[in-house]
């Protein structure tokens, strides 16, 4: 039944729409899209199983889900693809054999560069739909929720530490660590004193023999 809905074509269409939406909403005018004109990047993703070829024409992207010729072919997994956002990581990922690139490496870098530089002003985009005031309030609410979430995260972390130290006695607190350090220092000093006394005694014994 799912095949009736042509899932491969649906995926291709969704990727194409997402890229074109991102391009349309991009506010960074220095994204070098024109350098990709006529170039094709094919991506084989382990989890998906069909090749996805991305091309650009007149600043618009198109996606083919056929095994077409391409300037560069990347074989990888979804997890690694997420790391590809930073083009500097290409070499590192190839070394780790998480990524296989056939063809023109420069093409892969140019595509990565374009996707990395896309910048979307989310506040402006939301404001187009719900208005400036609502967007301002929404972003304030979002900031408030984020602040609360950070605080909650910190609190949970501290409470968990307390629970480990005082309830379960699985970890020690700072005072105990300090006491332990002091005890170790004292033992160290006593050992040093003992060593000096032993050295002195040794010298006295040698002097008496002579």
């Amino acid at each position: 039944m799912m095949n009736w809905l042509l899932p491969t074509q649906m995926l291709g269409g969704a990727i194409e729409a997402a890229i074109n939406q991102a391009l349309a909403k991009n506010i960074n005018t220095r994204v070098p899209i024109e350098q990709l004109a006529g170039k094709h990047l094919k991506i084989h993703i382990d989890e998906i199983g069909v090749p996805i070829t991305i091309g650009f024409s007149q600043s618009t992207a198109y996606v083919l889900t056929d095994d077409v010729e391409s300037d560069c072919t990347i074989s990888t997994s979804l997890k690694t693809l997420a790391e590809l956002k930073q083009s500097q990581q290409l070499t590192e990922l190839i070394k780790q054999e998480k990524l296989d690139i056939q063809g023109d490496l420069k093409t892969a870098q140019q595509f990565a560069q374009v996707f990395e530089q896309l910048t979307i002003d989310w506040q402006s985009e939301i404001a187009k739909h719900i208005g400036d005031v609502a967007t301002y309030r929404l972003s304030q609410a979002f900031g408030f929720v984020q602040e609360k979430a950070d605080f909650a995260k910190q609190q949970i972390s501290e409470d968990f530490s307390q629970w480990l130290v005082y309830e379960k006695k699985l970890a020690v607190n700072n005072v105990e660590i300090q006491h332990f350090k002091n005890d170790v220092n004292q033992v160290s000093q006593r050992v040093n004193g003992l060593m000096q006394r032993l050295t002195k005694l040794d010298q006295q014994i040698n002097f008496t023999k002579e």
Binding site: L5, L6, L64, T65
Partner: peptide, 8 residues
């Protein structure tokens, strides 16, 4: 989707 299939 039918047309996309045709293109592919």
């Amino acid at each position: 989707l039918w047309k996309r299939f045709t293109i592919d």
